[in-house]
């Protein structure tokens, strides 16, 4: 069994504990052991921290990386925001000596040193990688196929971009997440402007909620037109924006969509036979009942 240091992030454990629970359990069924990364802090959020003081962002992310370096384990995580911070800071520090020296100067205060000995992965990419898990193994792990459901996917910006620094190939028309949805027996659905931002990232949600919901609304309109039973994503912050955002959009714009939004790990958990209670789906702002009825 492969072992990774699991970087939880903030939103999953606090808002969608089901996504956290599902990650541990689904991963284990696919041969990945997620170990607790004790003492981890916020990643910290790339938009909120990065846009105010990059040095704080580097140093805090580096501290989280050093915790994993001390465990001698690569990091796995389930949030695109965390991916942006942890992956990108790791990448930058590995390739920029000047920056690394500056950060290590700060880390010295807590007796730490960034060495650049580990890599950072999104759990979804580990799931997709045929050398680690692969779509076939995912398909084999399914106990309750999601047959007959139409599911749209949202990749999220921080995972895929900037293109030059990432390693996912095409960033405009990716389909690997769709393949992973199809592996669960569901029908992945194309919709217009699939790669549009959820609206939350880059600090927009915190700075200007209406503007951010405006973007979300556009996505929801496109999803409604495509006629889907649920939306799945790989980022609890996108999840928050799509899920809680629907309540806010109803308040601000008077629109109602009632579209269930599930993290891919939650969806995978369902397909692997976890119960909605185990996945804490009742904590979602938008009820997953209509979707669950189709599945269970």
């Amino acid at each position: 069994m492969r072992e990774y240091a699991f970087f939880l992030g903030c939103i999953a454990p606090n808002r969608y504990p089901g996504a956290e629970a599902a990650s541990y359990k689904t991963a284990e069924r696919l041969g990945i052991k997620l170990l607790d990364l004790e003492g981890a802090s916020c990643c910290p959020a790339p938009g909120a921290f990065g846009s105010i003081d990059l040095n704080v962002w580097y140093a805090m992310a580096a501290r989280n990386l050093v915790l994993a370096e001390q465990m001698k384990k690569d990091i796995a995580l389930i949030c695109n925001g965390c991916y942006k911070s942890i992956w990108e800071v790791n990448h930058k520090l590995k390739h920029n000596k000047e920056l690394r020296d500056g950060v290590n100067e700060v880390l010295k205060g807590i007796d730490m040193e960034f060495k650049g000995t580990i890599d950072v992965w999104h759990l979804a990419e580990l799931f997709y990688d045929p050398n680690i898990v692969g779509v076939d193994k995912i398909r084999d792990s399914v106990k309750v196929p999601l047959t007959g459901t139409r599911i749209a996917v949202h990749y999220g910006c921080h995972l895929m971009k900037p293109r030059k620094e990432r390693h996912f190939g095409t960033t405009e028309h990716p389909t690997w997440l769709e393949e992973m949805v199809a592996a669960l027996g569901a029908e992945p659905v194309e919709y217009r402007n699939k790669m549009l931002c959820c609206g939350a990232g880059g600090g927009v949600r915190g700075y200007d909620l209406v503007h951010s919901l405006d973007i979300t609304n556009e996505k929801m309109i496109n999803l409604r037109e495509a006629g889907v039973d649920a939306l799945t994503e790989v980022c609890p912050f996108c999840q928050l924006q799509f899920d809680r955002g629907q309540i806010e959009m109803e308040e601000k714009f008077g629109v109602k969509y009632n579209l269930p939004v599930l993290h891919y790990c939650e969806l995978l958990g369902l397909a692997q036979g976890m119960t909605p209670q185990e996945l804490a789906l009742d904590l979602h702002a938008i009820s997953c009942e209509p979707f669950l009825k189709k599945v269970l």
């Binding site: 405009e172 919709y191 217009r192 402007n193 037109e225 495509a226």
Partner: peptide
């Protein structure tokens, strides 16, 4: 920055 297709009408945005 981007061209998008309406999957039904095949019009482009």
């Amino acid at each position: 920055s981007n061209v998008l297709e309406d999957p039904v009408t095949k019009n482009l945005y």
